[in-house]
C-alpha cells in the first residue's frame, strides 16, 4: 500500500526535488544567487505566467487543453493599452472590459467544445488565431501605457525589508494561486473538474453536471488569462500584439512538471506554482551563467517537459502492468 501511495506522488515529489536541486546548484555555482532578492524575483518575473498557469491547471485536470492563452495575453494587453490611450473610459472600466472579453472568448470556446463535441485543441487553436489577429486589428505596434492608475498599480508593492519589495502583481499571483487551490480542493465545482478529467463517462453516470462544468472551466481559464494579460501589461507598461508567442508551451510545461497529468484527473495547484518557479529558476540560472544564449531557456523547458511526460507515461504503463498481475 505504501509503495502505491508513493507512486501516485512521484510526479509532484520529483517536481519538488528538481526545484531544490536547481536552486541548490544555482546557489553553489553563482555568487549572489542565494539571496532573497533573487528568490522574490522568481515571483515577480513569472507572475503573469503563474496566473495563466492557474487557469491552465483547471483545464488540464479536466482533460482538456487551451492553446489560445498566449494570444489572449497579447489581445488583452493591446486592448487595454488602446482603450486607455485612445478613449476616456475610466481605467477600472477598462480592466472590467478586458476581463469580460476574455470571459466571452472562453465561453464561446467552451460551448463549441461541449455542445458540438469539437476537439479542444482545434477550438482553442482557432481561438489562438482569432485573438492574435484581433490584437493586430487593434494595433500593429506596441502601445505604451501612461495611465496614472495603472502606473501607480504597477509601482504599488509590499516592502519586505532590505529594500526588497513585492509588487502588487506578484501578490495577485500568490492570492490567485491560493484561491485556485481552494477551489480545487474545497468546492464541488473543483472536485467535478477532477471527475470529468478522470472519466467523463463515469462522471456523467454519477450525475455530475459535466457540460456546465466544462464550459465554466474554459470561461474561467480565459478570464484568468485576461487577468494575466493585464498583469503582463502592468509589468511591461505596454500593449504589444506579438506578446506571449509560445507562452502556451511555458504554461503547459509549468502545469505538467507540477504533477498534473495531461490525460486529466490528477493535478495540484501547489505543483503548478512550483512548476512556474522551476521555469523561473532555469531562466535565472541562464542569466547568471551569462555566456549562454537565452534561447537555451526554451530548449531546457522543452527537454524538461519531455522528461516529465515520459515519466507520466512510464507510471501509467506500470499501473496497467500492476493491474494485470
Amino acid at each position: 500500500m505504501r509503495f502505491r501511495l508513493s507512486q501516485k506522488n512521484i510526479p509532484i515529489l520529483s517536481t519538488f526535488l528538481v526545484f531544490i536541486l536547481l536552486y541548490l546548484s544555482g546557489a553553489f555555482a553563482y555568487k549572489g544567487f542565494f539571496s532573497l532578492r533573487v528568490f522574490i524575483n522568481l515571483f515577480i518575473d513569472n507572475a503573469f505566467v503563474g496566473i495563466i498557469a492557474i487557469g491552465m491547471t483547471f483545464v488540464i485536470i479536466s482533460g482538456g487543453i487551451d492553446l489560445s492563452v498566449g494570444s489572449l495575453v497579447a489581445f488583452t494587453g493591446v486592448l487595454c493599452a488602446n482603450l486607455l490611450s485612445r478613449t476616456d473610459i475610466p481605467p477600472y472600466m477598462v480592466i472590467f472590459i478586458c476581463l469580460l472579453c476574455g470571459a466571452a472568448l472562453g465561453l464561446a470556446m467552451g460551448s463549441l467544445i461541449h455542445f458540438l463535441e469539437m476537439p479542444p485543441f482545434l477550438v482553442t487553436l482557432v481561438g489562438m488565431f482569432l485573438a492574435r489577429g484581433l490584437s493586430f486589428v487593434i494595433s500593429l505596434d506596441s502601445v505604451p501605457i501612461r495611465n496614472e492608475l495603472f502606473l501607480s498599480i504597477s509601482k504599488a508593492s509590499i516592502p519586505l525589508g532590505n529594500g526588497i519589495r513585492l509588487p502588487a502583481y506578484a501578490v495577485t499571483f500568490i492570492i490567485m494561486a491560493l484561491i485556485g487551490a481552494y477551489i480545487l480542493h474545497y468546492t464541488r465545482f473543483g472536485r467535478n473538474i477532477y471527475a470529468i478529467g478522470d472519466n467523463e463517462k463515469s462522471a456523467l453516470l454519477m450525475g455530475l453536471p459535466v457540460g456546465r462544468t466544462k464550459i465554466f472551466i474554459y470561461t474561467i481559464n480565459s478570464t484568468i488569462c485576461a487577468a494575466g494579460g493585464l498583469v503582463y501589461s502592468l509589468y511591461t507598461l505596454a500593449g504589444y500584439p506579438l506578446a506571449g508567442t509560445g507562452l502556451e508551451l511555458d504554461v503547459i510545461t509549468a502545469v505538467v512538471i507540477g504533477g498534473t497529468l495531461l490525460t486529466g484527473g490528477v493535478g495540484f495547484m501547489e505543483g503548478t506554482v512550483i512548476g512556474v518557479m522551476i521555469l523561473g529558476l532555469i531562466q535565472t540560472i541562464i542569466t547568471f551563467q551569462g555566456n549562454l544564449s537565452t534561447w537555451w531557456t526554451k530548449v531546457f523547458i522543452g527537454i524538461l517537459l519531455c522528461i516529465f511526460i515520459l515519466l507520466q507515461r512510464y507510471i501509467a504503463a506500470r499501473k496497467i502492468q500492476d493491474k494485470n498481475k
Binding site: W295, I301, G302, I309
Partner: peptide, 18 residues
C-alpha cells in the same frame, strides 16, 4: 510512447525555434 499528438508536437514547436 502514446503522447497526445498536440503535446508531442507542441514540444518541438517551441524547442525547435530555440
Amino acid at each position: 510512447i502514446g503522447v497526445q499528438p498536440i503535446i508531442a508536437t507542441l514540444i518541438l514547436m517551441t524547442v525547435g525555434r530555440g
